[in-house]
Write a protein that binds this DNA or RNA. Structure first.
Lengths: 362, 362
DNA sequence: TTCTAGATTTAGACCCATCCAAAAAGATGC
DNA sequence: GCATCTTTTTGGATGGGTCTAAATCTAGAA
């Protein structure tokens, strides 16, 4: 109670100061200090100020580990992606980070490298660390039962980009079906009739949705030509696949690519074949990465907004944590076709389609 | 002790099982179970097996939060980068993740967006979470005192790619000085005499080292021409900077770029000016990202091995955690010039320089 | 002045593992 | 059989918060 000004402030070994010390210093109980720390409205203003002064003066450091032990939240989240070196995921993680940061959350990140085993190990570790929830981009070959396991563990999980297991589940992604529709519509409007689709394997929901959109859109426009080449979704895959494709007869006059990397590879492949992208063959990518603007030619691309997806996924996770039994949600952002030179249209930039609204996944 | 087979295994609400339950079930004390969990050699084999069986049978989940409260380690690390959307950092984070994973560590990731404030907030939060250490790529404008602050906090910190504060400090990076030397040497061998350097600002140690290498190498070869253009390190910056540069007289015959993004921008800029990269002007990048192989033309680049840097940084952090007062280390990997088409040499790939050995930073 | 609802504050149990010192059990030597 | 070492095991204190229910303190009502 009395201000002991006799000795210089008895600041102990930095962070060994506890609630008890603050309580003693400010003349209240441990409980009250705890309430102040958690910004409870129960505490009277005078008391709050007094305690806050002590906290600052003694250089107190909140111990979240201890708090988590008794309390119910850790303010941590686990995030699993399968290829963090891919800039798409980089942007997505940036979005997640920004959204979590606002709410005082921090996230553990794991790169599964598309290995279900690594993914599993990480999730078990997350359980041991008692994270409040999981953001999961499921690795290729993840058993659908994983979602049930997480549910048994009482660990809220938001699936991102890909989904496994049976609905209803929490999910955040882009509407890939709609994206391909937009691309096909645009090409048809430009007069194309032979439109191919490049890249992807059937295992992922995200690929299946693209293919579904492709088939639907062709049917919708009454087009007969249909050519879908499976393959990896890398630059070099695009390079190889386009060579196969252009050797066929009849050739397509346009290709839609699984992502921008494939599209860049395809454009390079066209050039190596002596063809001009956008003139001899239109190319449309997916994702609209930064590089698309500065390609040669600039790439028309279905923008899938990874940063926004990351933000939405994080926010959805926070909602689910706050209300674990709430109705499952699917936040599926509408993509937007970004028209540039690679599909031979004019060089002017045309705002192409509807503004962002929610669609629905299969 | 007696196997209570009367009722179906009394598996309670999933994860509410504690050491106490295991102890009771296997007929030993809590302490012994704890020793088993930590793989202590003190425990007799018979006992260990018995306990492990109980652990499995009851579906026990280790509570790391509780362990951390009493013990001294959390097996967690904080990682701060300033631009996770950049594939270079993506690869680096992948390396960090892989190295940590092997040792049972997990990491919190934050994207500072080059904001010292965000970085500061994150570091404070990491302290509250009692991470065992920090991997820090300091944000632009980070006060050098931050390193002292972390030391006061008793938080081991390995700086990565950039460094601030006074030596000795723990640091993992690439030898940027040597990288530029390699690039200049190669260009000089090809007959170039007017070599410019593109991009970067003086604030970062990583930029300063590149510039130092540039100046040193020119002096070493007795070249008079010296032209260094500051600027951002993005694709579009490269595009703009090269235009400025090529309008000068005399023009350089070669440019070395701060990173590959700048180099790609520069190549695009050359094409827009009607010049051919590798013929009218040689271009060399830094980092050797995947895309370099598939550029048009393929880009000669100083490979800086981000994945390896990430691994080394993580391992160094683990060493420092194990031995907080050990001598500070600087792990600086030697880069390697990857010769391709963009500097006009032949199209054959020449293994250019020495294999990886450690160099030393300024 | 006494009573009471509402606003504040608090004591003490609790979360779940780890640490330490000391006890118990087993092995060995004479 | 007893003392002496080892090898194993263990009780109880401990870490630093949060939770609950109850205690205390107001100010306005009766």
């Amino acid at each position: 109670m009395a201000q002991d000004t006799a000795r210089p402030s008895p600041r102990r070994d930095s962070s060994s100061i506890t609630l008890q010390d603050i309580a003693a210093h400010s003349g209240v109980s441990r409980s009250t200090v705890s309430l102040v720390l958690r910004e409870s409205p129960l505490v009277a203003d005078r008391t709050r100020l007094k305690v806050q002064r002590s906290i600052k003066e003694l250089g107190y450091v909140y111990n979240r580990g201890a708090a988590a032990l008794r309390g119910s939240r850790t303010s941590t989240l686990g995030v699993v992606v399968y290829d963090i070196a891919n800039p798409f995921f980089g942007a997505m993680v940036a979005g997640i980070d920004a959204a979590l940061n606002k709410e005082g959350y921090v996230s553990f990140l794991a790169n599964s490298e598309d290995s279900p085993q690594r993914q599993q190990r990480f999730l078990e570790r997350m359980r041991e660390h008692s994270v409040d929830g999981i953001l999961l981009c499921p690795a290729e070959g993840t058993p659908p039962s994983l979602i049930d396991t997480l549910a048994e563990w009482q660990l809220p999980c938001v699936q991102v980009l890909r989904h496994i297991g049976a609905p209803p589940f929490d999910y955040a992604s882009s509407d890939f079906v709609l994206g391909v529709h937009q691309a096909v519509d645009h090409l048809v409007a430009l007069g194309h009739r032979r439109i191919a689709f490049l890249g992807g394997y059937a295992e992922h929901s995200a690929t299946q949705e693209r293919w579904q959109g492709y088939a639907e859109a062709l049917a919708h426009h009454g087009l007969d030509y249909q050519r879908l080449i499976r393959g990896n979704v890398t630059r070099s895959a695009g390079l190889e696949l386009i060579e196969t494709l252009m050797r066929e007869a009849p050739r397509p006059t346009a290709v839609i690519c699984h992502n921008d990397l494939v599209a860049f590879g395809a454009m390079l492949g066209l050039k190596r074949l002596g063809l001009t992208p956008g003139q001899d063959c239109a190319v449309i990518g997916t994702d609209d990465v930064e590089e698309a603007t500065l390609g040669d030619p600039a790439l028309t691309s279905v923008a899938t907004h990874p940063y926004a997806i990351g933000e939405e996924a994080a926010r959805l996770a926070l909602r689910r944590i706050a209300d674990p039994d709430g109705a499952r949600e699917q936040v599926v952002l509408a993509p937007r076709l970004q028209v540039r030179e690679s599909c031979g249209g004019s060089l002017t930039e045309t705002p192409a389609t509807s503004p962002a609204t929610a669609g629905s996944p299969p």
